[in-house]
Design a protein around this nucleic acid. Structure first.
Lengths: 343, 343
DNA sequence: GAGTAAATTTTACGCGCGTAAATATTTAAA
DNA sequence: TTTAAATATTTACGCGCGTAAAATTTACTC
């Protein structure tokens, strides 16, 4: 403790014996100064516990070291998990992640982007809600800020997209289900909030056609992000009315499946593969909780780690390239079949 | 579109016909200017799409309009949900929430607080990890920034605490379980990460003593935040070895219970109340997923909404009072019994 | 209409740092 | 040792806004 604290970089320069411009350079990029000076600075930082004023620093910089991470819904464990992974990757590269959730509301998503613009981020990782209505505003944002979309694609928007190959992953699980039992019906929301849902529906239809089976869509009414509730409600209704066209249900995502499984349990139906099982249920995403459902959920995993890694890398390339460039790279990771108890 | 954009408040002052100091006042508190001027400013803001530079604004203010929200683990739906609720409350009061998760790591928690200090927040809502080791640093932080602790208390640290009354809530469910069947054993982690866990253990012991029953603690080994996994692993072991001292298990939290339920299902045991049920399982928290377990989980709800509301209100009072004051208010909300299928 | 309090404008300075340009010093290669 | 290149220092200005003080205008009361 040196008693009185350093109030600004000027003071820190005099006590540390290093000129202010050099300090300024150091704080914006520690590698930009000579090794020996860096060590002197770091020692002085330690000794005097000095941190430059973030606001004064960023005021005159065109860009900051902030990277925005925007997800549609933070209380959805899927997004929470991917956000967590992204944060780690961003931190490791020396940037500061700024996490924003849109609470499922398109207007909040736009507000989040506007707030992000105010903090002049170096770049943004955006998993859009997917409502078409806001396309223009997101597009405008992407023209000003290097942005990588992940999870949900909006054609032509943003400088890159990283996500899952829904065609491949749905094909995989449809194949598996057809190979091991009755062809699946596809259980989804009537008006999905997410563009992946449409891709998965299309992929299901294509897969069923390829295998010469009649596709059957089951569309649950309901809005919002309470997917488990929607899956449970519609599942209960279907099981009560006994209107299921097949004994095998492929859900558009794990959260719907979790609700459906719960409905099946309440209805006293045994779900799974073996004899004595009345129903097979499969999901998609490898949701953090799919390991603990009853029975455990057969699903297709999305490679969280790979998606997060690639998104962060793509954004960093973009940032370091300086100019946006007009190529738009789309990276799709393949799903992996996760065989568990439910199908 | 007025073509060329306004670059700073000076320009905005000239085009809007309002002096810069008045504009400055307005942007720091819209209610501090006369109604008629406010309307003129708002019209001009709309017309010219001007936003003041956030960094320049905050550079000279002692405090900003930022409110930090720090939770131990964002991928835990319990914290995600409470963070979401808090964000909404903060937004409604005109402040900007800054959400930070500590990923379960004490050093990240401290880093989060340090980063928060750099942005000079008006106040902070902190749900501490609860490791005793970092107490001093958190205490030091609280001395500089108005801070309200929530969820987990650290005695004497922070200017207020808002949480659940574990004594009452555990008492409630122990009463219920004893009244409707065998007295429960208490299933918890050997070395809990959270101080609430200790409170709940103590509350369990007290409740059992009060009811003249012999308490039985079952302590699962394991570290980290994978509570479901820990509950599942230890649950499986207990059920395999048939070493359970009773047919009724009260879990220290819902996530452990979710794992335990999964283990019971895998072991082929029927969980619930009725005849033919081998086991009763109860939890604590009313976790977002406890509604969809199989069977649905009997638990004690924490009043998320009330905790979030009170925390935000307490912090705002603190901020508006100006001086910290040395009183420290502790608010505990009572749990509500949520009777579902599992017990 | 005078009188008064509240709000606004004018003027002016400061905040903490980015950064440019010229100069000086250090480092490493020749 | 000489020399050139890399790095650091000195000096100086600007960024966009906060904010204080004095002068002026506005709104409201009697």
């Amino acid at each position: 403790m040196e008693g009185n604290k350093i109030r600004n970089m000027e003071e820190f320069a005099s006590v540390s014996g290093i000129s202010r411009p050099t300090l300024s350079k150091y704080f914006n990029d520690p590698t930009s100064v000579r090794d020996s000076t860096r060590k002197r600075i770091e020692a002085a930082v330690e000794q005097y516990d000095y941190r430059p004023n973030l606001y004064a620093m960023n005021q005159n910089r065109r860009l900051t070291k902030n990277i925005g991470i925007v997800v549609p819904y933070l209380a959805d464990p899927f997004f929470a998990e991917i956000a967590r992974t992204l944060e780690n990757h961003v931190l490791r590269t020396g940037y500061r992640p700024v996490l924003l959730g849109s609470h499922g509301r398109p207007e909040l998503e736009i507000e989040n982007l506007e707030n992000l613009r105010l903090i002049k981020p170096a770049g943004v990782l955006l998993a859009p809600l997917g409502r078409v209505s806001e396309r223009e505003q997101i597009e405008a944002f992407c023209k000003e800020v290097p942005t990588v979309l992940f999870d949900a694609n909006i054609d032509g928007v943003g400088h890159a997209f990283v996500g899952s190959n829904n065609g491949q992953s749905i094909g995989l699980i449809v194949d598996y289900l057809c190979r091991t039992g009755e062809p699946p019906a596809f259980f989804e929301m009537e008006t999905p909030t997410n563009p992946n849902a449409y891709k998965r529906r299309t992929a299901y239809l294509a897969a069923m056609e390829r295998l010469d089976h009649k596709p059957r869509l089951i569309q649950a009414p309901g809005e919002g992000w309470e997917f488990e509730e929607i899956g449970f409600r519609e599942g209960s209704r279907l099981l009560r009315d006994k209107t299921l066209p097949t004994d095998t249900i492929l859900c558009s995502n794990d959260r719907l499946a979790i609700g459906f499984l719960s409905a099946a349990y309440e209805a006293g139906l045994r779900v799974g593969l073996g004899p004595g099982c009345a129903l097979r249920v499969a999901g998609h995403d490898d949701h953090p909780f799919s390991r603990y459902t009853c029975p455990t959920l057969t699903t297709v995993s999305q490679d969280y780690e790979a998606i997060a890694k690639k998104s962060a890398e793509a954004l960093l390339e973009l940032i370091e390239a300086g100019s946006p460039g007009d190529s738009r790279e789309e990276t799709l990771f393949e799903g992996r079949l996760i065989m568990r108890g439910s199908a």
